[in-house]
Computed example of a mutant assay.
Amino acid sequence: MFTKEEAQQLRKEFWIAFAEKYPRKWLLHHTKIKDFSFKFFADSKKAQVLLDIEPRDPEKRTIYFEKIESLKTILLEEHLPEAIFEREFYLENGKLISRIWVQLDQVSINNKKSWDAIFDFFYEHMNAFELFFYEYEEYIKDLELNT
């Protein structure tokens, strides 16, 4: 077990090591769509690459999710075959969002031996997510264009 400070330091080392292995600027929050962002996540059991759709307006959240969902076959066949779609996903704080993600199990941010596997997973899957987004960006952004 780690102290809070040790765990915090280890997480810091993890993200620095990832940035050194894959030094590039990721899309993440720079989608130009409010509350529509890509994220990396790792804990003691898994790693995830996420697309969180979080507008407070449930109608906007639904529209964005349905736009991505209308492209589901393309996303699964050409980019991320193991993507999971969750129209209603509750965060730990109780906030309702929509989420699309991929997951790598049996890895731990606390185990440096699994870092390379996590880094490679992050790179490969976020890159695929970004390519998909850039290809369909105009369609996704346009709230007037129905699915």
Rank of each mutant, 00 (worst) to 15 (best):
L96A: 07
L143K: 03
I97L: 02
K21S: 09
Y90E: 00
I16E: 15
L145W: 13
V49Y: 01
R87G: 00
L51T: 02
E66R: 03
E66Y: 10
E5W: 15
Q9I: 14
F122I: 11
K95D: 01
Y22M: 04
F89V: 00
V102H: 01
K113V: 06
F121Q: 00
F129A: 06
Q8G: 09
I53F: 04
W101C: 04
E77C: 06
I68V: 09
F14S: 05
Q48H: 10
L51R: 03
I74A: 05
V49R: 00
R56V: 14
Y139M: 07
R11Q: 14
Y90M: 06
R56C: 09
F41L: 12
F121W: 12
E82W: 03
S70M: 02
Q48T: 10
K4G: 09
K45E: 14
E66D: 09
F89W: 04
L91S: 01
Y123E: 09
K39Q: 11
A47K: 02
D120T: 10
E6N: 10
I84F: 02
I33S: 08
S70Y: 08
E135K: 15
R99G: 00
E13V: 13
K72F: 02
E88R: 01
F132K: 05
N110L: 11
L96M: 10
L145Y: 12
S37E: 10
D57C: 08
P55L: 08
E59S: 11
H125M: 09
H79L: 07
N93R: 03
K45D: 12
D120N: 06
E78D: 11
L27Y: 14
L91M: 07
Y139R: 05
K113P: 02
E137P: 02
E88P: 00
N146P: 01
W15S: 08
Q8C: 13
E13R: 14
R56H: 09
E135D: 07
D120G: 01
Y139L: 09
T31F: 15
T3S: 15
L143M: 14
Q103Y: 05
K25Q: 14
F65M: 00
D120V: 12
K21V: 08
E124V: 12
Y136I: 01
L71K: 05
G94Q: 03
K25R: 12
K46I: 12
L75V: 06
K141F: 06
E59L: 15
F2D: 11
A19V: 02
R99V: 00
W15M: 12
F38V: 04
S44P: 05
L10A: 10
S108I: 05
L28T: 14
H125C: 05
F14E: 06
E13D: 13
E130I: 14
F38S: 06
W15A: 11
E137M: 11
I109C: 07
K67D: 00
P55H: 08
K113M: 05
K21G: 02
K46R: 13
S114K: 07
A42R: 02
A117G: 04
D142A: 11
F121Y: 13
Y134N: 09
E6V: 02
L145D: 03
F129E: 00
H29D: 11
A83V: 10
D142Y: 08
F85T: 01
T147D: 01
L91T: 04
